[in-house]
């Protein structure tokens, strides 16, 4: 039986520490600001304001069956904003989880943590939660903010609230947790095997390959199909990770490569 009350003490300690970590807090502020405010304003709101009537007619050609501002919004939403938004859960969880074990080793506190009367599974899970909770909370907060910004700025053009729609809900409620888990598992593992945070981050950058998949999908115009396929594959990988990780995790490994 996992003793959540005990392992949560480690999670809380980590979350407090991370808020004081400059690099992590920078990612947690800059990334949401970019994806929820900067990109929609620069890509959609401002250009629409500056477009002439002819420009809008031309924009209508972007998406068959739609016209003007709506076509422009849907095109940019599907090819750019939505694929880029996967960066939010990926980068936040990566910045936190690459520090999870490597940071303890670097600051020479790993041994104290390993001496605690927790099982290996509990310790491993405590570190996963310390990335998962902020990763999900921040991504969802960004999602809600983006929804509000898009709806308020686009209502005058569309006459209805564009968000939330089905693909956005899927993105937030299904894809986000799956992506977050994926990034955390990979990065906690890399962190566990690295000597310090820097080398953990270099390796951990690999998770952004997933993001390229989404980007390509967006440009090919097959966003939905490819999204579902990638989500399914990542979901399966997550389940394998959840099953295997606590069994492979060992204190000795952390002690020996400190």
């Amino acid at each position: 039986m996992l003793r959540f009350k005990m392992l949560f003490k480690v999670t809380l300690k980590d979350m407090r520490e991370n808020m004081k970590n400059k690099q992590i807090s920078l990612v947690m502020i800059l990334l949401p600001a970019t994806f929820t405010i900067m990109i929609p304003l620069l890509l959609i709101v401002l250009p629409l304001k500056l477009m002439s009537h002819e420009d809008l007619l031309e924009a209508g050609m972007l998406v068959p069956g739609l016209e003007g501002a709506e076509a422009y919004l849907v095109y940019n939403w599907n090819t750019i904003i939505l694929p880029f938004f996967v960066m939010v859960p990926l980068a936040i969880t990566m910045s936190i989880s690459s520090d999870s074990w490597a940071g303890e080793k670097e600051r020479r506190t790993a041994e104290s943590l390993l001496l605690l009367p927790l099982t290996d599974e509990e310790l491993f899970l405590a570190k996963v939660l310390a990335s998962l909770i902020p990763g999900l909370v921040i991504t969802w907060a960004c999602g809600i903010t983006l929804t509000i910004i898009i709806d308020i700025t686009m209502y005058p053009y569309l006459g209805y609230a564009f968000l939330p729609n089905a693909s956005w809900l899927f993105h937030q409620l299904v894809l986000t947790p799956i992506l977050a888990f994926f990034s955390i598992f990979i990065n906690v593992w890399i962190s566990y095997r690295s000597k310090d945070t820097k080398s953990a981050q270099q390796m951990g950058g690999l998770v952004f390959l997933v993001f390229i998949g989404f980007l390509v999908g967006g440009f090919l115009g097959v966003i939905t199909l490819l999204t579902y396929v990638i989500t399914l594959i990542l979901g399966i990988i997550d389940i394998i990770f959840i099953y295997i990780s606590p069994k492979v995790f060992s204190r000795e490994r952390i002690m020996i490569n400190t």
């Binding site: 003490k9 520490e17 600051r107 020479r108 041994e111 104290s112 001496l115």
Partner: peptide, 26 residues
């Protein structure tokens, strides 16, 4: 058991009190 290691093993950015509360809480 209680172990005094070669490294002091305390979190340098936390106060002494917070450190002790953290470890004792287990």
């Amino acid at each position: 058991i209680g172990m005094l290691s070669e490294n002091h093993g305390l979190y340098e950015k936390m106060t002494l009190e917070d450190n002790l509360n953290f470890f004792a809480g287990f």
